[in-house]
Design a protein around this nucleic acid. Structure first.
Length: 274
DNA sequence: GGCTTTGTTTTATA
DNA sequence: GTATAAAACAAAGC
């Protein structure tokens, strides 16, 4: 499940591997992956275009191309973006192949085919699905504790739903919401407007801390996630609650529990989180 | 072969 | 229009 730390790890890896290369050809083996524009236009417009840089917005990967074009990629649950030597056999889940002007391909690999690729004008985010509606990125300067506190207080939904909402805050998914709420000592089912100022402050710093630690560990490879070099991350070894239901809480020794909040599997310590 | 998984979109309702 | 919750959807692995 590539969330912010996984996408950031991929982007950093890609930057070193594909920046300043030229896309000489594109092979689309699974047309449904290309969301915009229509297929032949997509292929035609990519050909012979140079990759200028690679950026991230929330969970979206932005591959910036020359002449004001940007390729926007969302990996959803099981997506990978791999840089492989040209002669490597195509995996059956490699659905789109970008051939570069060196010895390598960029390959979009996606077991469940949920991921999508858009080719947009760089200044027109509306062409790429939810990209235009993203809230602040928790590691950027515009994500301030003042904004976070004041906007949380206006909301009546449970705090887990709010943190999963990409237009409220961009980049968190199920793993890092559960981990951040554990670190802040807040139950996922709490109503947002019931949180005290000090709880919100703690949550604000917990989110940033968890994300930074996870990036340092190269992300969480619970099942599918791999970086651009097809290597696993290590943050699964540092998780406190996610997928640890039935096990002992590292903090209090009690049992980690699992329930459903916001329609998602939700992991928490009923003793440490209030 | 039904169930589970999650990120996002869609739909319904207030 | 906005906030919210629930349902739908994507597809494969077990």
């Amino acid at each position: 499940m590539p969330e912010l730390p996984e996408v950031e790890t991929i982007v950093r890896g890609l930057r070193g591997l594909i920046k300043n290369t030229i896309i000489i050809d594109v092979i689309v083996r699974e047309p449904r992956i290309i969301a915009f524009p229509e297929l032949d236009l997509f292929e035609e417009m990519l050909k012979d275009r140079e990759i200028i840089d690679v950026q991230r917005r929330g969970k979206y990967i932005l591959i910036e191309l020359e002449s004001n074009k940007t390729m926007v990629i969302h990996l959803r649950m099981t997506g990978r973006l791999l840089v492989k030597e040209k002669e490597t056999d195509y995996d059956k889940h490699s659905h789109v192949i970008f051939q570069l002007d060196n010895n390598y391909d960029l390959r979009f690999h996606n077991v469940r085919k949920f991921g999508r690729i858009y080719l947009i004008d760089s200044d027109n985010y509306e062409e790429a699905g939810g990209l235009v509606n993203l809230g602040p990125d928790p590691l950027e300067k515009n994500f301030t504790s003042d904004y976070f506190r004041e906007s949380i207080k206006k909301r009546k939904t449970n705090i887990k739903s709010l943190l999963l909402n990409q237009s409220f805050i961009a980049g968190l998914g199920n793993i890092y919401v559960d981990e951040s709420l554990f670190l802040a000592g807040i139950l996922p089912s709490r109503k947002a407007d019931s949180l005290s100022d000090s709880e919100i402050e703690k949550l604000y710093y917990s989110i940033k801390k968890v994300l930074k630690k996870a990036i340092k560990a190269g992300g969480t490879s619970f099942s599918d996630y791999r970086n651009a070099q097809n290597k696993k991350g290590y943050f699964q070894n540092e998780l406190n609650v996610y997928q640890r239901d039935g096990k002992e809480c590292y903090n209090c020794g009690g049992k980690i529990e699992k329930s459903k909040v916001a329609g998602r599997g939700t992991h928490y310590c009923p003793v440490c989180q209030k």
